[in-house]
Amino acid sequence: MRYFLLLIGTLGMAAAMQAQDIDPVLTQVKARLDSIAGFEVTVQMEVDIRYVNMPVKTAELSYQQGNSVRIRSEDFVMIPKRGLDFGLGELYKYPFMTLNLGEVEFQGRPCELVKVIPTTDASDYSIATLWIDSQRRRIAKSQISTKKNGTFDINYAYKAPKDVLPEGITVNFQVADIRIPLRFLGREAQVDKGQLKADPGQKGAIRLLFSEYRISR
């Protein structure tokens, strides 16, 4: 009976934590973002992966609250799987709890370091860490460890102190090196073989630069 009560108590606490333990700083940021119903913006994308040579691409990005972003471009563009979660919809999709690790300084600004831990298996990330600029109530940096696609390190840059939508996002990630069968290779066949074996993975980044936000509230 005692154990039973303990169990009930524990479960009750857990449920209470779930309800209460979303960090207020995060909630504030989410509320600011939720005030934006949608927007359209022009985005320049610059891919920085050692073995990819791609010119800077321009695309039109549109966001509607509750939907994932849509990107239109005449050209071929590579869209990072993380980093475009403007409304934090992906973080909030499944239940989670947060853990505030206190204030840290990030890029000369005081930030709250908040860990976001999903509480169900359905979520496709295992943990996310957010550096939230508590004064300006916006995210300065996030680190999302996904279950399948590795860890994404995302830095946000803003134009004005009041802005909640970033002017630039840099997404850093781990990427496996390319393996091309010999028959598809041109003259470089003999050059990179050793290097390919020795280098199973490397860092890559994509830099997104936003301009001309057309925001609907």
Binding site: R72, V77, M78, P80, K81, A176, I178
Partner: peptide, 20 residues
Amino acid sequence: EILDLFLENLTDTFEFNGNL
């Protein structure tokens, strides 16, 4: 097939928009 091979290691990180 060639494109899949070329882009294989990028599919974890990226979605592709456009026809190669």
